[in-house]
Structure formats: structure tokens, C-alpha cells
Design a protein around this nucleic acid. Structure first.
Lengths: 281, 281
DNA sequence: CTGAAAGCGCTAACAA
DNA sequence: TTGTTAGCGCTTTCAG
């Protein structure tokens, strides 16, 4: 592997100059820049990211902290995050960190100095990982929200907008809204439609009522379960692929503009028709 | 962040000694080892992986090269790979590389010196990425196989075993085997059951025949599609979660025992009953 | 068994 | 505009 030293020698300049053209950090005459650039091309030079990171105190690596056991969030989330990281002009790397919910593990990992920041998946209302990252002084972005997300970089589902779309769908079918959020143990018989956010509960309800004849169900979540159900559930699909990319983008924005706190990015679910919603009888 | 220097000072030894206990690379008196270890504990010392990597010429980071656009392989694959990497006693990191099928991009990435090896997903029979990695001299493991996999570290689906299970299932229902591999344009009417490996083709067949009354279909692949189909497909599910971990394990084994070439790990699909297979009429 | 010292490949003052 | 040089934090000979 060729090093800056080799390039410098071949171009007849100092290694500092090579670094300057590499990073565009100081003015260099077009002529010398040319010489350096062709030397790099001829040698097939690739800058060693490790050495760069050590010297520059910035690794351009970010971590995606995901649940240790797969919660079935779908590969789109991860691949979109991975693409977003590499897509930037100068390219970040994304490492995967399977971590528990207590903050110890993630604290240990950031202590290793490998990453410039962390994207945290499946954030809880009270989240020890968030505390650990704050304590360590590591920049991070949340996918989801803690109880008090103000002050944290975060991206999440736009629930308000999503609910609006969901209600619109149900009302279009002729259902009338009522306020009954929460976990009612038993569904009053006058209810003609429900919006469900919980897998298990959804299947529970489906055993008690004839869907969609007696009850329409609109399910918020990922398609896996919705597809398997019988009848196939009408789904408000979480924008997984989009959130992954947005989270990474927000974090990188922050890293490159230390002052700024990127505004929260909220993205709605999209309605995917199924057979679990219909006109009320 | 505390450094070896801080630890050495506090323990009253040289930084070399600290390194020796850190890596267990030279004998150290229990007494001094103790002093060093408590110094590390007191300072909350974490070894900087970058500096270690640069000096030791080994990063303990491996890359998972995945298709740039999500092919719906499921998150289990990636999370199991990520867990396998971190699980080892001394912990590897896994970075994600979305790459095209031509070898340029991956060649560029390994040139950066960030990783000790690469796990390659969705390997093709003729694969430019494999050539690029070979040329670069980077250790790698394949998920899948090239036309001639001998000499490459690889893990894959055990097709032989899987087919045996599949045939067993169909014969148990009363179908009789015939040899008709390939892509027959039209299905002879005497055929009572097929094993399908291709999404599109499967749906094509389903529009032409009544399933499972006229034709039983056994589908090899991932559950996403199988679940959505009507009737729900009987599935031979690819062992994604297992292969991810096996691939990483094989690569790390190789990295830590430069001589050895880990034997190919083949793992069969598992049969998941659906409604697309039945007794022939 | 322990320490001194020379790097790993690069960045970034500071000088020239 | 370019070069000299001192690190970044660690590993690893080579002496002692």
C-alpha cells in the first residue's frame, strides 16, 4: 500500500502538501496539485482511514446501536442507514452495535474511541443508553423519542399526521370517531373500528370479533404480521427505510456543524389497503 | 479519556508494561499486573481501538458487503452477523458496506485499510467483487457460492439436504418425483407439484393453475412473499439468521489462524407448512 | 521481568 | 504557497 510519503516523493513535494490536497485544507498551486494527484493515481493511493482518524481526532465512523435480539424491524432500515452514511461526499462508515438496554455496554463501546457518533434504534421513554451517551459526551441521534426529546437529535414517525390519515380512511368508510385511547380490556359493542398498535392485542381482538364485518381494524406497524393475518390487515406502514437514512443524515449534519441541532424529522406512516377495514354495518 | 501513559504513570510502570498486560503478550509479575489493572480500573481506561489498530496492523473490524438496494433479505441476517462479530472474547466490529456488483467500489473500500476482512452477501456465480478482493489480498468469506467455490471460505444453504426434505414432504402427500429442473415455459398438466425458487415465476404459476387443488407449490425463499400469497405458500425458509453468524465466524477463524481454511458450512432450509401443498387429485 | 525508543500513516501548527 | 516537525495512542523490537 502506498503512503503519503510515497506520493510526496513521486510528486516531488512534502508530505504536508500531499495532505493539503487530500483534505483541501490549504491553498495549493494548480500545478503542484496536479502533480500530487497524478502521483496518487499512478500509485493507486488510498488514504489510510485509521491513521487519518488518529491524527485528525475524527474517525468518520458512526455506530448504529440496534437491539441485541432481532425485533423484526426489517433490513430496509439498516440498509438505508448504511447507504446514507456512505453516500456523503467524503463517506462515513457505519458499524453495527448490538446492545442491551442498560447503558453499560454502549458506554464501554463509545469509550473505545472508534466512532464519532451513534444512531440509537428503538428508543424507550426512559432509556439508560441515552443517559450513558450523554454522560460520555458522544453525539447521538435517536430513532424514536424519549419522554422528553427536546434537546436531543431525533427522527420519528409522525404520529399526528399518521393518525389523521388513518382517521380519514376510517371516516371515509363511514365510521365515526370516538375518544378511547388506551388499553380497554373489552371492546364495547358500539365500536365499529379500531386502530391497533400492538401485535398481540391485534390478534386477540381478531379472535373475538368478525373482521371486518363486525369490526374494522387498522394496524400500525411493519408488514410482516399484517400480511400473515387473515383477513390481511389494512396497514399503516412505518417508514422504516426512510427513518434509517434520516437518522444518519441528522447525526452527520450535527457532526459537521457542531453548533447546530438539526430539527426533528417526523415522517408519517403510509396506508396500505388490506381486507380488515370495511364499511360498518 | 485516559491513555496508556496515564495508566503507566499511576501504576508506576512504563507504557510498555501496560501494553504487555493489556495484550497478555509478555510475562508480567502478578504484583505489577495487579497494579496496572487497578490503575486501569480507577481511571476507567478503555484502549483506543484506532491506535491499537494502527500500531498492530490489525483493526479487528470486518465488513459486511451487502447489496446496495435492499433485496429483502431480512434484518435477522445482519443482526446475527453483528452479534457474532461482537460476541468473540476480544470483540470485533462489523461495518456495513453497500456495494455494487462490479468490483471497483469494494476494491476502493478495502484500500482504505479499515477492515481485516470482508463477508460478502448475495454472491454471484461470476462475481467481480470476489476477483477484486482476491486481487487486493483481503481475506473474505462468501455467503453463497461462486461457480467454483473451492479455495474460498464460504457458507451457504445446504441445497441437497433441503431438496431432500422438500421431496419428502411432497412424496408424503402422494406426489411422485420426476426430473424437470430448469425453466419450463409451460407446465405439463401431468405435473401435480413443483418446487419454486423464483418469486416472479411463482406468482406466474399461481395465476395459471388452482393451488393447491390442481398443483402443489413448495416455495424456497424468505417468508415475506410466502406469507402474502393466497393461498399462503408452503415455505422452505432460508436459514438467514444462521448463515450471517456462520459467515462471520468462519472469517474470524481464518483471520486468527492464518494457515487454516475453515470448511464450508452448509445449512438446510426449514419446512414451514402453508396452504399451497396438498394431496394430488 | 521491565523499560527506552522507534515507528504505524496521517494531520496540523508553525516556520520559511 | 510549501516544508519541518511534533504528535495522535498504541505495539513491539531490543536492551538491560
Amino acid at each position: 500500500m502506498a503512503t503519503v510519503r510515497d506520493v510526496a516523493e513521486r510528486a516531488g513535494v512534502s508530505i504536508a502538501t500531499v495532505s493539503f490536497v487530500l483534505n483541501n485544507t490549504k491553498p495549493v498551486t494548480p500545478a503542484t496539485r496536479d502533480r500530487v494527484e497524478s502521483a496518487m493515481a499512478e500509485l493507486g493511493y488510498h488514504r489510510n482511514v485509521l491513521a487519518r482518524a488518529l491524527a485528525a481526532r475524527s474517525t468518520r465512523i458512526i455506530a448504529l446501536a440496534h437491539p441485541r435480539l432481532d425485533t423484526g424491524f426489517g433490513s430496509e432500515f439498516i440498509t438505508s442507514a448504511s447507504r446514507a452514511a456512505r453516500a456523503r461526499a467524503r463517506g462515513y462508515h457505519l458499524v453495527l452495535w448490538p446492545v442491551d438496554n442498560d447503558g453499560d455496554e454502549i458506554g464501554e463501546l463509545v469509550g473505545q474511541g472508534l466512532v464519532d457518533g451513534v444512531v440509537l434504534m428503538e428508543v424507550l421513554l426512559e432509556d439508560a443508553r441515552v443517559d450513558a451517551l450523554s454522560a460520555a459526551g458522544t453525539p447521538f441521534a435517536l430513532i424514536g423519542r424519549t419522554a422528553d426529546p427536546a434537546g436531543f437529535i431525533h427522527v420519528d414517525i409522525d404520529f399526528e399526521q399518521s393518525i389523521a390519515v388513518a382517521l380519514d380512511h376510517l371516516q371515509g368508510l363511514g365510521h365515526r370517531p370516538t375518544v378511547a385511547a388506551g388499553r380497554a380490556l373489552r371492546l364495547p359493542s358500539r365500536i365499529t373500528a379500531v386502530i391497533m398498535m400492538n401485535e398481540l392485542a391485534t390478534f386477540g381482538v381478531m379472535t373475538e370479533r368478525v373482521v371486518p364485518d363486525d369490526l374494522s381494524i387498522l394496524y400500525f406497524g411493519t408488514p410482516g404480521l399484517a400480511a400473515i393475518a387473515n383477513p390481511q390487515l389494512t396497514l399503516m406502514r412505518a417508514p422504516a427505510a426512510i427513518l434509517g437514512g434520516l437518522g444518519v443524515d441528522a447525526l452527520i449534519d450535527h457532526l459537521e456543524t457542531p453548533g447546530a441541532l438539526p430539527a426533528p424529522q417526523l415522517h408519517p406512516c403510509t396506508l396500505e389497503p388490506g381486507a380488515s377495514t370495511a364499511r360498518p354495518r
